[in-house]
Nucleic acid binder design. Sequence first.
RNA 1: GCUCCGAUGGUGUAGUCCGGCCAAGCAUACCGGCCUUUCAAGCCGGCGACCCGGGUCCAAAUCCCGGUCGGAGCACCA
Length: 475
Amino acid sequence: MEKKVQEHVLPDLKDVKGKVVMRLAPSPSGPLHLGHTRMAFLNDEYVRRYGGKLILRIEDTNPANIEPAAYDMIPGDLEMLGVKVHEIVIQSSRLAIYYREAESLIKGGHMYACTCKREDAKRLKLEMKACPHREQPLETNLDIFNSMRDGKLEPGSASLVVRTSLDDPNPSLRDWIAFRIPAARHPIAGDDFHLFPTMNFSVAVDDHFLGLTHVIRGRDQLNNTYRQRFIFDYNGWKVPFYFHYGMISYPGSLLKTSLMKKGIREGKFSGWDDVRLLTVRALLRRGYRKETFRKYWIDSGLRDVDATFSWEIFNSINKGFIDSDARRLFFVKDPHQITISEAPDIESSIPFHPSRPELGARRYSVKAGSSVYITTEDWLSISDGETVRLKDLCNVTRVDGRLTYSKAQDLSRKGRIIHWAPEKSIGFTVVKPDGTIDSGLLEPEGMDVEGEVQMERYGYVNSFPREGTGYFTHR
RNA sequence: GCUCCGAUGGUGUAGUCCGGCCAAGCAUACCGGCCUUUCAAGCCGGCGACCCGGGUCCAAAUCCCGGUCGGAGCACCA
């Protein structure tokens, strides 16, 4: 039987002539998180489709917002996700280019140096009025620019402003700031640099000189695209094709890098890979496959509508990738020890995977009079007189508060089937995404199965048995 | 307030540009059945949606107008 499956396919990009050049432009404030993976996979997909190159451009022009470790974490995250980056560009190493372009724009009369107080400049702009420096001589602008660059001016005392139009109905497009002198020193560029572009300036310059053909990014960037267009127009540059996709909201999730960083510093989280966080590394540790991210984002498409991230769908996709390889094991949470009265010696053989007999089975000998463990929850739920099956072991009946080897070991009878763990099981804990921990016992043969497993009747777990622990993936 | 964008079932989407094949497809969730020594996977069946109001047209999810609701941004963050 052939099944008709409708595969989601991303729409074609407009204006593709030959190969494309696209980019990922994160700021190095921390490692990548779930929100970043969308832009990573969408760009990666298009570069794979059309051929060309994907540039990772680390946008570090705000010295106050830099986590030095991120310069290594970000490429590492992308590699773990299987996103193919062809070139890495770090903006703080391109300051000379930005200065050169700034000088050129000043000389062309498109940019001026402003020494207004921040509040004054803001007020004037809202009133659609020019500040006193807007019409000052070109020489003055160049002098101030040189002083700014050479570190002769105090942080915040001057800025370079792109001249647009003061009566633009959109206030954010009126004469926007292109360069400023931040107070913080830049951890990578060092102490010799004092003047830094704002992202709108560096992005426009880089998008041009790096030869970007297509830029797809979130709708939150729309106003920035309008601003950046001024730089293209003043220079007579060809504008790349821009597309802004809708924003995804992540219900109840902590996705702000700064807050994660704060939590880590305060000891609330163990690190960037704390399973409570939605960083790429945390999600991989929990057992999500890189393929899941790719499929999810392709399925979500490239639409300009806002949407809500669906864990339901994400988990379901992941299950599809992991299930056939996930060996089945028994994890008995909150164990309750039982002895089955009147039981003979029993040899138990339990397949590692119900649909893949070639993976073999775990085998245990349960001697007469020895004990096994079941979950306390199961124990409490068995009513007197009820018969349940210990999976691949035997039927037991509860008589007078004890579990007794059933008279009927009929395998066809319908009844509840519960899981168990032999006497020599090992202590095991499962860390759940909310930070809580389930403790219990893992069957002995689980010791040799590392990675993604399915704890029967419990859920999928990324298991590290040598450490006696695992991370809950999803049900 | 201003600029911009959007609105398909519980959720994610296809279709909207170029109106008819859409009495709306797929996935997921849920319900029922089959299979099964897991409440997994698989298979079969079912439930369930075009924001509202006008207009254009033989014909509108698709075009136009108005409304409502939702979202993003709003100046030296990226």
